[in-house]
Design a binder for these strands. Structure first.
Length: 745
DNA sequence: TTTAATGGGTTTTTT
DNA sequence: ACCCATTAAA
């Protein structure tokens, strides 16, 4: 019983055993924060006899919630049946709202709009208002709207704050957007928080019942909470005031989404009598990694400042690699990972980058080296068009006023309801203040408003389909229902008829969706719960701990750790990102992001940058400069990994052979073996003597017809060498060396 | 109405 | 490079 206490250091133990009242745990990177929260929960249950259902733990991602569930269950001896409620802010809110939202004039079948739905809604608003061709893009409008909503601003207050016509326009769009969602019986992500807070404000007895129920509230990553979340937390803890929050102001990286570090800085004032515990012992990283990361983040002014102490020894210095372009960078990283996995197949590696667009080169390089990897984020399963289409049918069947879902599938599969009809439906709905479904119903009933018989026929078919789906929804299990949609809508038929590889892939994805529904069903979930889950899974939740190699953005990496970490693309404009460059606060956030990335590494950290990165695939951009963050790492902690001193001209001759570390090693080994003291300039023949071909993977070549390409594969030797070369614009070409005139560049 | 072709604008990070 | 909206052709 309670052996876990002995594995904790004194500070951690204090945090676990601390009694009632507000508790703030300032946990530096790698200080065992997840462990402390899990132990605290287990301790509350086991040592202090708190009923599990009276504990609520809140995290930001489903993944984090899941991890915590596992750990707590482990501590409690594998009992997962009646654990405490561990959930994300958003899932918690959905739970509450599904029960009580009628108080706010919505129905319990409300839809959840994710970013794609939101964007469609905003687009529709722009159309309603006749602003479609104006200067305001839907994306820009949405980002302003979300910003306002996160800060609790209403359309009216936005309007009164507007300093120019553009600001007033945004406010008008905002107002329309709110109407639209209300009419669709839909909530966006921000609304989930807003409406829960509103519910607690307007229905004190509901707030009270949750206050009674939740005796202990624990919040992870408190530095990333926004105003609404903070408000919610306060509303939930008014009665017991047993609030434990864990956070690290140096890891606050979501202020662009409304997170306010002030929440953590102000915590003591908000909750008088707070006990503060600092965890500054780092168990994760080597001293070198920690020193480097601390040196970087210490340049920030807006921080409380803390001193992390490493438990581990110095370790290797930070690797610094300079490459020619993104392909070379990726080839280098893939090579390093290959080497590391060859030495120890159990080690874990991550490639972290600032923007999702950077993942491509790494994917290609890893595939070339036949290294298994897991890509987190980017394009998630539930974001695929076919998945969204089918889920839209399911959504609409349960909530007929969900007009975004309706327009999404109105003509998918094609049923003769094109743009013209869609516009007519939208116009009618707009004119009468109805939702699209009502408008369609009236048009079918006779008030066709000058539609073609063809369109009317299509609308009738559509209406019958949705009506029958709405009935089936009540009768079928989730799995059956999804299957039924696929058949009844004609979606399967449409894809089968297409007979293309893409269509096959989509069919495969839909099969996967049916599986997911079946799994949910086996877990005892209803269709509504399955849909909620689908709406709230995030990209970061795709992270698989068993994967040896993971590719993801720095943001998704928060909270994770790896033996090897590669921080890629450390160039001015990329990281720090150009859009944050002129804003001191934005710059500090970028620096914190760098800190987060660096501190993910346990044993080895390598930072890379390249001189020639294509923005928007445009060639001939000016040379990139190394990120300022690189120069903020003390020189004595850095181990250069490339022939940095080589001028670009010399590099050209040597492309591929000496550019990368393994190329350099190869060349050196070759020299040693042959006992020759040949200079580098005759290295080409030196490598040939060693049986090392002139053409290697990754070498860039020029072809008379196809232009510049990169060698993907070499087969055979000498004159008979067969090369697979990838040429941008022409794809992969197989060439014989003796026929193709290839020039090494 | 649908499909294929063309041209212009655009990407930070995500619950 | 990619996504999109518009345009021309079927």
């Amino acid at each position: 019983m309670m052996e876990y206490l002995h594995s904790l250091n004194p500070r951690q133990r204090e945090a676990v055993e601390y009694g009632d009242g507000p508790l703030l745990i300032l946990a530096g990177a790698g200080s065992g924060k997840t462990r402390v929260i899990s132990c605290r929960i287990a301790h509350l249950i086991q040592a202090r006899g708190v009923a599990p259902e009276r504990i609520l733990g809140v995290t930001f991602t489903n993944k984090a919630a899941g991890q915590m569930k596992e750990r707590v269950a482990g501590l409690l001896g594998g009992n997962t049946e009646s654990g405490p409620l561990l959930s994300t802010f958003h899932s918690f809110c959905v739970r509450v709202l599904r029960r009580h939202i009628e108080r706010l004039g919505y129905t319990k079948a409300f839809a959840i709009y994710d970013e794609d739905d939101q964007l469609r809604a905003v687009k529709a608003c722009l159309e309603d208002l006749g602003l479609s061709d104006g200067p305001v893009t839907p994306r820009a409008a949405l980002s302003r709207i979300s910003y306002a909503k996160n800060r609790g601003l209403s359309p009216e207050s936005l309007y009164s704050q507007a300093v120019d016509g553009a600001g007033e326009k945004i406010a008008t769009i905002f107002e329309r957007y709110e109407q639209k969602l209300r009419q669709a019986n839909a909530l966006d992500f921000d609304d989930l928080l807003i409406k829960t807070v509103a519910l607690f404000d307007q229905a004190p007895e509901v707030a009270q019942s949750y206050n009674h129920r939740i005796e202990y509230l624990l919040v992870d990553e408190y530095q990333d909470t926004n105003r609404l979340q903070n408000r919610l937390i306060r509303l939930l803890t008014e009665l017991h005031r047993n609030l434990c929050v864990v956070g690290d102001e140096d890891q606050s990286i979501y202020s662009w989404r409304g997170a306010e570090v002030e929440n953590i800085l102000r915590f003591e004032k908000d909750f008088p009598g707070t006990r503060i515990i600092r965890l500054e012992q780092n168990y994760r990283s080597t001293q070198a990694i920690l020193d480097a990361a601390s040196a970087v983040v210490s340049r920030n002014l807006a921080r409380l400042g803390k001193q992390l102490r490493a438990v581990r020894d110095a370790g290797r210095r930070i690797g610094l690699y300079e490459g020619w372009d993104a392909e070379e960078e990726a080839a280098f990283v893939a090579g390093e990972i290959k080497g590391a996995l060859a030495r120890d197949s159990t080690s874990s590696a991550a490639v972290l980058y600032r923007t999702n667009a950077q993942s491509r080169a790494f994917e290609e390089a890893l595939r070339r080296e036949a290294i298994d990897y897991r890509l987190v984020g980017g394009f998630s399963f539930y974001a695929r068009a076919e998945i969204r289409d089918v889920l839209s049918y399911a959504r609409l069947a349960g909530n007929l006023s969900d007009s975004v879902a309706l327009f999404r599938i109105l003509n998918v599969p094609p049923r003769g309801l094109g743009d013209v009809t869609a516009k007519a439906v939208a116009a009618r709905a707009r004119g009468r203040g109805q939702c699209a479904w009502q408008a369609i119903a009236e048009m079918i009933a006779g008030d066709s408003g000058g539609l073609s018989t063809r369109a009317l026929h299509g609308l009738t078919r559509f209406s019958h389909l949705v009506n029958s789906l709405a009935r089936e929804r009540e009768l079928l299990t989730p799995r059956e229902f999804i299957r039924h949609i696929l058949e009844a809508s004609g979606y399967l038929e449409m894809l089968r008829a297409e007979r293309s590889p893409e269509a096959d892939e989509r069919l495969e994805n839909l099969r996967e969706l049916v599986n997911a529904a079946a799994e949910a069903e086996d877990r005892g979930e209803s269709l509504a719960e399955f849909l909620d889950h689908a709406a709230l899974v995030s990209d970061a939740d795709g992270y698989d701990e068993r994967a040896r190699v993971t590719l993801m953005t720095l943001h998704s990496a928060k909270g994770l750790e790896f033996d090897l970490v590669f921080l890629a693309g450390l160039e001015e404009g990329v990281f720090p990102h150009r859009l944050s460059r002129d804003d001191p606060a934005g710059l500090e956030e970028e620096r914190r992001l760098c800190y987060v990335g660096m501190t993910r590494a346990r044993d080895r950290l390598t930072m890379t940058w390249v001189r020639h990165r294509r923005a928007f695939a445009q060639e001939g951009a000016e040379e990139g400069r190394p990120s300022r963050f690189l120069s903020e790492v003390p020189a004595e902690l850095v181990e250069p990994l490339s022939a940095l001193a080589q001028p670009a001209k010399a590099r050209t001759v040597w492309a591929g052979a000496v550019n990368s570390v393994d190329g350099l090693e190869r060349a050196l080994t070759a020299r040693r073996k042959s006992g020759s003291s040949r200079s580098f300039s005759s290295g080409q023949s030196a490598t040939r003597l060693d049986g090392n071909p002139r053409w290697r993977r990754g070498v860039r070549v020029r072809h008379a017809k196809y232009g510049i390409g990169t060698i993907l594969q070499c087969e055979g030797a000498g004159e008979d060498t067969k090369l697979t070369v990838s040429f941008p614009g022409y794809g992969e070409k197989k060439l014989m060396e003796k026929y193709a005139t290839l020039e090494k560049i």
